[in-house]
Design a binder for these strands. Structure first.
Lengths: 159, 159
DNA sequence: TTCTGATCGTTTGGTACCAAACTAATTTCC
DNA sequence: GGAAATTAGTTTGGTACCAAACGATCAGAA
């Protein structure tokens, strides 16, 4: 990466380059992309799940039945995106949608029994995968990584 | 996140949960997604660029003319994906494709003069954006974040 | 030479993803 | 009580993204 730093600085001329920020932020995507692809390849594809689909199921497993809006928020996707992903999961028989009687605009999403079984079997494997992806880091380093990332998330979420 | 930890542990029963790994890895996506959306919103949309399109232009700016295969690798996308993104950038007049005379399978991609101007103007703003997204972190913390992420990338790239 | 295998970029088919427009249901305010 | 504003989820139109199949080109061997 030092070559890049020198080259970028050359392009910028006298414009100062904040390389530390570039280094921190640009590595976030690189890491996210490579871990995501690896997870889909190595683990999720055999369950017919995308990374996003897995995330939905995990959230529902932990917090149980949930409205669409909150589910989208928890999963970090737009609500329109969630509609399509839920349709996919519904076709696979993994989640169910139920209109709320008292307010028919709302929809409650929940895991089906099949979905429950699937995520209960899958999650331990996924957690082991996460351990492998963070292999070589101490527990303190893992928590430090999470802490630093939370600062970035907070910055990016400011309104 | 501590509620989640307790809830997940409850679901897992006696199965041990590696929460530190979960914490580290799951925050990577959250951070990547929120920073990406913010960048597109706040900065890239006014240039008509997606995050991926910006990445391509940045790589070409730093390393200059490059073959498709290496460009895809540098940008962290599949080569088929790159084809479509290059078509978009080509339509916008920002990059050009040129077949290599000595080996007509190969294609060299480069920035057009317009592309050069665009990225030279945009990059300082993007770097300032990166600084904002990593605001509140010291220089040492930024480099530590990058270092920890590189470990993850290396783990995810193992064959 | 010509056949075989490898390599490069593109195409294809499909999901994921977003923002904005839309529809239906509910609440607010006069 | 009814029009207007608000809210929830879906639909729409478009890009991004992947893996696998494809077509063209090149390199090597018989």
């Amino acid at each position: 990466m030092l070559d890049a730093e020198r080259d970028v600085q050359a392009r910028l001329g006298d414009h100062p380059l904040d390389f530390a920020s570039l280094d921190a932020i640009s590595n976030i995507y690189r890491a996210a992309g490579s871990v995501r692809r690896r997870a889909e390849h190595e683990l999720l594809s055999s369950y017919g799940l995308s990374f996003g689909g897995f995330t939905i199921m995990w959230v529902l497993w932990v917090w149980e039945e949930m409205e669409t809006a909150r589910l989208a928020e928890e999963c970090g996707v737009a609500k329109g995106t969630l509609t399509g992903m839920l349709t996919t999961l519904e076709k696979q028989g993994l989640v169910s949608r139920n209109r709320v009687e008292s307010d028919k605009r709302r929809v409650l999403v929940d895991l089906t029994p099949t979905g429950q079984t699937t995520i209960a079997e899958l999650f331990p494997k996924f957690n082991a995968f996460e351990a492998k992806m963070s292999g070589g880091l101490s527990i303190e380093e893992k928590h430090e990584l999470a802490r630093l990332l939370r600062v970035v998330v907070a910055n990016a979420s400011d309104d």
